[in-house]
Simulated scan of single mutants.
Amino acid sequence: MNEAGQGVAAGATAGLIGAVDAHAPMPARAPRRTMPLGSFTDIDWARPWFAQHEARGRRWQQAALAGYAAYLDELNADALAAAQSTGRGRPLRFIAQHDLPEGSAYEAHIAATGCVPTRHNLHDFFNALAWFAFPRIKATLNARQAAAIDVRGVGPTRGGVRDALTLFDENAVLFASSDAPLIAALRGFDWRMLFVAQRAGWEAPFGETIGAARCEVRVFGHALLEKMISPYAACTAHAWVVEVPQAYFTWPRAQRDVYLDETVSDMLAADATLDALNGRSFAPLPVLGIPGWWAQNEDPSFYDDTSVFRAGRRTR
Results as ranks from 00 to 15, higher is better:
residue 199 R to V: 03
residue 21 D to Y: 10
residue 154 V to Q: 14
residue 35 M to G: 10
residue 11 G to I: 00
residue 98 H to D: 13
residue 273 T to Q: 13
residue 116 V to W: 06
residue 314 R to T: 10
residue 21 D to T: 08
residue 251 W to M: 15
residue 270 A to D: 15
residue 25 P to M: 05
residue 216 E to C: 15
residue 294 W to E: 08
residue 165 L to W: 02
residue 152 R to M: 03
residue 167 L to H: 04
residue 187 R to A: 11
residue 226 E to L: 04
residue 236 T to N: 14
residue 133 A to V: 02
residue 86 T to R: 09
residue 223 A to V: 12
residue 207 G to S: 05
residue 288 L to Y: 05
residue 185 A to D: 13
residue 3 E to H: 09
residue 104 S to T: 12
residue 45 W to H: 02
residue 306 T to W: 02
residue 159 G to H: 03
residue 262 E to S: 08
residue 116 V to K: 09
residue 123 H to V: 02
residue 84 Q to N: 05
residue 26 M to V: 14
residue 265 S to A: 15
residue 263 T to D: 14
residue 281 S to W: 01
residue 39 S to K: 05
residue 205 P to H: 04
residue 217 V to M: 08
residue 29 R to K: 09
residue 80 L to F: 09
residue 282 F to K: 09
residue 98 H to G: 00
residue 90 R to T: 01
residue 178 S to P: 05
residue 10 A to C: 01
residue 135 P to R: 06
residue 269 A to N: 10
residue 299 D to A: 13
residue 163 D to G: 03
residue 299 D to L: 08
residue 98 H to P: 00
residue 19 A to I: 00
residue 217 V to A: 06
residue 94 F to M: 06
residue 7 G to W: 01
residue 236 T to H: 13
residue 11 G to Y: 00
residue 4 A to R: 12
residue 64 A to K: 05
residue 119 R to W: 06
residue 267 M to V: 13
residue 185 A to T: 10
residue 216 E to T: 15
residue 158 R to D: 04
residue 26 M to H: 10
residue 179 D to G: 03
residue 68 Y to W: 04
residue 4 A to G: 07
residue 76 N to V: 09
residue 262 E to A: 11
residue 120 H to T: 05
residue 158 R to S: 04
residue 278 N to K: 12
residue 227 K to T: 15
residue 131 W to F: 06
residue 75 L to T: 09
residue 164 A to W: 11
residue 28 A to W: 12
residue 147 A to V: 12
residue 100 L to F: 01
residue 97 Q to F: 03
residue 18 G to V: 02
residue 217 V to D: 06
residue 222 H to F: 05
residue 103 G to F: 03
residue 77 A to L: 07
residue 54 E to V: 07
residue 175 F to C: 09
residue 223 A to G: 07
residue 104 S to F: 10
residue 148 A to I: 03
residue 278 N to D: 15
residue 128 A to E: 08
residue 99 D to S: 01
residue 144 R to F: 04
residue 190 D to N: 14
residue 126 F to R: 12
residue 174 L to F: 09
residue 69 A to Y: 05
residue 39 S to T: 08
residue 153 G to L: 12
residue 4 A to E: 12
residue 35 M to F: 10
residue 238 H to T: 06
residue 195 F to M: 14
residue 233 A to K: 14
residue 17 I to F: 09
residue 204 A to E: 13
residue 261 D to H: 11
residue 60 W to I: 05
residue 287 V to R: 08
residue 45 W to I: 01
residue 16 L to Q: 01
residue 77 A to G: 04
residue 248 Y to V: 05
residue 91 P to C: 02
residue 60 W to A: 02
residue 276 A to L: 09
residue 49 W to A: 02
residue 55 A to K: 11
residue 216 E to H: 14
residue 93 R to L: 01
